[in-house]
């Protein structure tokens, strides 16, 4: 288990280095530049970590984002520290240009898949169980969210980054929805995962 966590830390470092390298290498046009992430994100909460760092690409004229996050919950906030990765797809449906420097994206829909590291968070039912003993897997949960983003050109003149954005997202995951169905006594706020973050664009 610790090896996997170790791996995650290295991966995070790699993500950060890639991004730093990416922003520094702006002025050159390299052969492999298309491989560089289009943005990096730092997110608070949202069910995928206390703090999560991510990198990703945009597709379809910046309407679809695919982001890979590494999230961490330190010991103290939970009784044991938790490491996880998630892959998140966001569709940005509306884009409002406020001014030359500001763009508002008020309606982003997202879907994510989240994997927590550790042998107890298995993805495939361990072999000692009879087939289909449990129908879900604790190690891999999917969820949905909606969110909004304010894109700015702050830092654009001072750094190689093209802009910085703040975003918020509100969501839930399948296991919470499955618990809520048929139980009116469970407050809706209990199944909500709220998070916010900043994004730095290339």
């Amino acid at each position: 288990m610790w090896k996997m966590r170790h791996f995650s830390h290295w991966f995070l470092l790699l993500c950060i280095l890639t991004f730093i390298n990416n922003t520094q290498a702006q002025s050159h046009v390299g052969k492999y530049d298309w491989l560089l992430p289009d943005y990096a994100k730092l997110q608070y909460a949202g069910g995928i970590g206390f703090m999560s760092a991510g990198v990703g690409y945009t597709f379809v004229h910046q309407r679809i984002d695919a982001t890979f996050f590494y999230g961490y919950v330190p010991k103290g906030i939970a009784i044991d520290d938790l490491s996880s990765v998630s892959l998140q797809f966001t569709a940005k449906l509306i884009r409002i240009r406020i001014s030359e420097n500001y763009q508002l994206l008020p309606l982003n829909f997202g879907w994510f898949i989240h994997h927590t590291f550790g042998s107890e968070y298995w993805i495939n039912l361990p072999s000692h169980y009879p087939p289909e003993y449990y129908w879900w897997s604790p190690g891999r949960n999917a969820g949905i969210f909606i969110g909004g983003e304010l894109k700015t050109k702050w830092l654009a003149r001072k750094t190689p980054a093209s802009g910085i954005a703040i975003y918020a997202r509100i969501g839930t995951r399948g296991l919470y929805l499955a618990s809520k169905v048929g139980n009116s006594s469970i407050p809706i706020t209990d199944i909500i995962e709220l998070g916010f973050g900043i994004a730095l664009y290339r």
């Binding site: 608070y44 909460a45 949202g46 069910g47 995928i48 970590g49 206390f50 999230g71 919950v73 906030i77 939970a78 009784i79 044991d80 938790l82 996880s84 927590t116 968070y121 604790p138 949960n141 703040i166 918020a168 509100i170 995951r173 296991l175 919470y176 706020t189 909500i192 995962e193 709220l194 998070g195 916010f196």
Partner: peptide, 21 residues
């Protein structure tokens, strides 16, 4: 606005489905 948002939403922030606190 962000500060107001954060104060009003305290308790909705979720870090992990496996957070024991």
């Amino acid at each position: 606005l962000s500060t107001m948002f954060l104060i009003s939403c305290e308790g909705l922030f979720d870090y992990s489905p496996y957070q024991i606190d």
